[in-house]
Amino acid sequence: MLAKVAKSREMRTLILVILVFAIAAFKEPRLLSASSISSILLWIPLLTVMAVGQMLVIVTRGIDVSVGSMLGLSGMLTGMLFRAHPDLNLALGAGASLGIGAVLGLINGGLIAWAKIPPIITTLGTLSVYRGLTFIVSGGHQIDSNNIPSALTEWSLRGPVTIGGVTLPWLLVFALLAVGLGYFLTNKTVLGRNLYAIGSRPEAAHLRGVPVGKSVFACYVICGALAGFAGLLYASRYGFVNPATAGSGMELTVIAATVIGGCDVKGGSGSVGGVLLGCILLGVVNVALAVLGVAADWQVLVYGSVILIALGLDAFASRRQAKEVAA
């Protein structure tokens, strides 16, 4: 039953993606041009990597609004590392960004799981703290493009596979890897099962012997690590890291993608596939808005509405379900 609902949710998102794309492409055929498609494909990865982490958190009835600031701080520190050691191996840089993110997530997770501070308060606090630290460690100076290795920015350009003239850039490969990791975690591991159990009924999970604290802690660490890695992808995609703008406000986009992708905000359900579709939908919408020439002033409004509509649909669906059960 539950699997069916989850599946139908993914179907719903998929239909929406196709519908939006078709309508926009009908109005502006240039959305189908190679450069538009690659613009969409490059828009999605950053978001997807962060949304997979956010999904794990939302499944446990939590939330992490500090992801944008974690991206900024990790991107800044990793950028400073590259500035100090221009010949640094990229793999080491990637490891550093993951590690920095994990440490930041560890702080969130510790405060939530053990100090028992509600997730929204903890991460609202660290949203400010991490952004402030980004300024402090950088002395307010941004990382310019000449401090970022060309090999890193080429991640948005070159990739291992080329299909019909369109290269699958490394950036996208990493996003797919993150999706794979999310799939593995949620479907094949004890931790994944525990997260769903906690989100469905925290008290019952505890009584059944699920290590609630440890599991919750782990999902914030993973969320942080992925947001940290997104910091490196940000440097690759945009070619510079500014302490004020890097990742600022991205938490809303990430949460929007996650709830559109069908994560139940009351916890306990959500699938990686749905989240990926949610990210694709937002990527299509964003690029389509630009290609259609819609003013940027409307973007925040769109995100807000999207979150609320997804919430409303959820409420509606769960009510109908409840009625069916009662009948």
């Binding site: 450069s35 613009s39 940027a296």
Partner: peptide
Amino acid sequence: KSTTEFEALLAK
């Protein structure tokens, strides 16, 4: 946003 707008220019 600047990146997306610039890429849209290329497409259009």
